[in-house]
Design a protein around this nucleic acid. Structure first.
Lengths: 203, 203
DNA sequence: GGCTGTTTGTGCAGTGGCTGCAAGTTTGCA
DNA sequence: TGCAAACTTGCAGCCACTGCACAAACAGCC
């Protein structure tokens, strides 16, 4: 089971090649000005193959991480059961940030594309309704509640929203070392939420 | 200025006719099985005209309310400045519910379409990013904060999320008078949020 | 009632995302 | 080596959506 097999290796490579092609082309010419044909051609495969790997042109740029759901579930079930859900989510997100540092360069390009297309981020989060569902399920399990209970659902929705806001705020001032890091934005948003969104004092 | 003019009247009528056609056809044959041609034909206009009224096939079904943003802004600016934002939003949503009761029949059909296509609801809420922006702006004004401050943005995102969850929960048990009304779900979700999502006791 | 400028409706041709199908090609396995 | 399963590819096609050029309807004015 340790061996991966030639077939799987090729498959993974084709996928990452397509992602790179998509992100590069989008940053070079603008996402709207490239076609799926362009992406496939640069990746050296047929257009039809492109759609065997991605259901959508957007997916090729965003490259949704299929393992994310498992990591989420694992983190939630292994964290202290009486920990506040927002705190559990916060620590999970901080863990993930170190992962992002890996493909640093690819991520910067990807983010520049997203910055030009804010709707894409939104769509990513909501067709990522699957992820939200995973969150709700995991918290429901931990709390001994039914999966469709209002509490875990609200919690899950709030968490994804929170992360989205933090990302949006962070994207406004990218790369500048004097501005807050993404982790700082996450902390700020989650702190607001744990305090029930109590308004700050007037300036 | 009181008179509406024949031109405007016709325009409004064409729009509502298209909406009715879209919703009816979608409920009859399923949203995926109808084309924009079908909708236009039933409405008695050309396909090209359809796209003069709606940017998207989805829009014809959802019929986004262009006046909503103004009502939101008005409600927020006229409500007590020291009122908790979540409470302000809660009362606003309750006001809107009475409006929905007007086109009751159309709304039921629309909801049945949405129930078959949960993604549509999500997309509606996030291409309704415009609405979220309005929310953030209005709260920022009221609090004397800059429009891009994290607090109003988090608040706005949380409110739209909350409403989305309430709607989703409500859609699961529609029309049954023994189950909670939409307003009850809204209350429940907002209560959870004002308490910082404190987990309920284990059952 | 006519005249003129501005909207609104429509046909047409075209782009491009996305899919099903029926091959061909490659890999896994015995 | 030979067979089955998985992967790739070309092709034909659907359909949402757009730009453009022109016809039709309307508003305001004389």
């Amino acid at each position: 089971m340790g061996t991966e097999g030639l077939r799987d290796r090729k498959k993974r490579q084709t996928r990452t090649t397509l992602v790179r092609a998509a992100v590069e082309l989008a940053t070079e010419h603008g996402y709207d000005n490239i076609t799926t044909d362009d992406i496939a051609t640069r990746a050296g495969v047929s257009t039809r193959t492109f759609f065997n790997y991605f259901a959508t042109k957007e997916d090729a740029v965003l490259n949704p991480d299929p393992g994310a759901d498992d990591r989420i579930r694992a983190h939630i079930t292994t964290s202290p059961p009486d920990q506040h859900p927002l705190e559990t989510a916060r620590t999970f997100l901080h863990n993930e940030l170190t992962t992002i540092d890996h493909d640093h360069k690819l991520w910067l390009a990807r983010l520049s594309v997203i910055r030009e297309h804010p709707d894409m981020l939104n769509r990513a989060f909501l067709s990522g309704a699957a992820t939200e569902h995973t969150l709700a399920e995991a918290f429901a399990d931990r709390l001994g509640l039914p999966a469709d209970h209002t509490y875990p659902r609200t919690t899950a929705a709030t968490i994804t929203s929170a992360f989205r806001v933090a990302l949006t705020q962070w994207l406004r001032t990218p790369g500048d070392p004097t501005t807050p890091a993404l982790g700082d934005h996450i902390n700020e948003v989650f702190t607001l939420l744990t305090h029930g969104l109590t308004p700050p004092a007037r300036p």
